[in-house]
Nucleic acid binder design. Sequence first.
DNA 1: TAGATTGTTAATCGATTAACAATC
DNA 2: TAGATTGTTAATCGATTAACAATC
Lengths: 209, 209
Amino acid sequence: MNRESQVSITVIRRLPNYHRYLGELLQKGINRISSQELSKLTGFTASQIRQDLNNFGGFGQQGYGYSVEELYNELGKILGLDRGYNVVVTGAGNLGHAVANYRGFRDAGFNIIGVFDRNPNNPRFAMRNLEVRHIDGLEDFIRENKVDIGIITTAKEIAQDVTDMYVRNGIKGIWNFATIDLVVPDDVVLENVRLSESLFTLSYFIKDL
Amino acid sequence: MNRESQVSITVIRRLPNYHRYLGELLQKGINRISSQELSKLTGFTASQIRQDLNNFGGFGQQGYGYSVEELYNELGKILGLDRGYNVVVTGAGNLGHAVANYRGFRDAGFNIIGVFDRNPNNPRFAMRNLEVRHIDGLEDFIRENKVDIGIITTAKEIAQDVTDMYVRNGIKGIWNFATIDLVVPDDVVLENVRLSESLFTLSYFIKDL
DNA sequence: TAGATTGTTAATCGATTAACAATC
DNA sequence: TAGATTGTTAATCGATTAACAATC
């Protein structure tokens, strides 16, 4: 099911933004917001916000707007942030380091339960908070623990091999940072972070300044 | 000029992919490719590829296709990868570490000439290859060196301050990893890397598996 | 009740795909 | 020349915006 939900991917990618702003409002103690106010905050049009939300249900109330807390919680549920996931990282370099230690992910329910590398004893790659295991133990580890998400922060040369190990042992979600188009079966969800795509796009826009 | 070029942003974001595949073909010694073959490789339709390319010029030849080398070079020019940029990184944590040491960026002409942090002597944040400077020296450094791009890998709390320092001293391109919507003047290009947006989207798709 | 704001349908806009004449 | 494949126009599809009746 490679992304064939009813709701379009462009809508889905806006949800985390709504969720983030609602979280900030909640912290500020604001408990009510209209689509128009949310529009000013997020930069999306009020019409678009209402359309987006109504893909999932009528969370608002005419004449009033939306309850910040309710909408925040609903979006959390929709995004699956109310569950908690077990996550492994393969590739304990700088990027693996960064991802495995990023507080925001842990707080959102993504628990890094294992970090793997081809060279776990490389002092350059010493993870501070987490033991780095040898990649040879990866498959056993996945089988013995319920792993929901596999992150790939390896060199691109071994990224497909790691993917295959993930898939073979039942991981259903892969978050890939390697600059390569990985091949996965239809029932595995692949999400790519394309850093050079982003940097090169920036380059395009500044090249004539 | 916040992204108001003639060519749509969705087209621009595909260019780095074309560029990457053409680079691979070039390395393999393949010197000719049709839009149809490129379609199979990239997953974009042949029609879309031809449309995209023709925004910038007629690089192909009827009955033949495209010269891999020529198209690769043209795309490099379009993306501004033929120039070389001076880049500073602020925030020498894990992520700054990763970005500053990523070989792919240096190879594409992005030269990290300075890394800054609030706490440059923090042993946790010791950069291996580059001296980390104190953030108090950032503005002088930008003025004294021609800096094209400023990267932000700081905590979100100081990201806007760093942005303001960048902007005040003439930096025209900002690559932001902090989870915050930065405010920049119209003549500064801001490109965001939204890691949690990406992870939460993955979460959405696997939550019911 | 009157005012406000949603949910939702219709209109518009933009992006993708299809088709084919031009031409190498 | 015949075959192949581009460049480009037209048709389709999907996403965004506008509008407004429903209703709190």
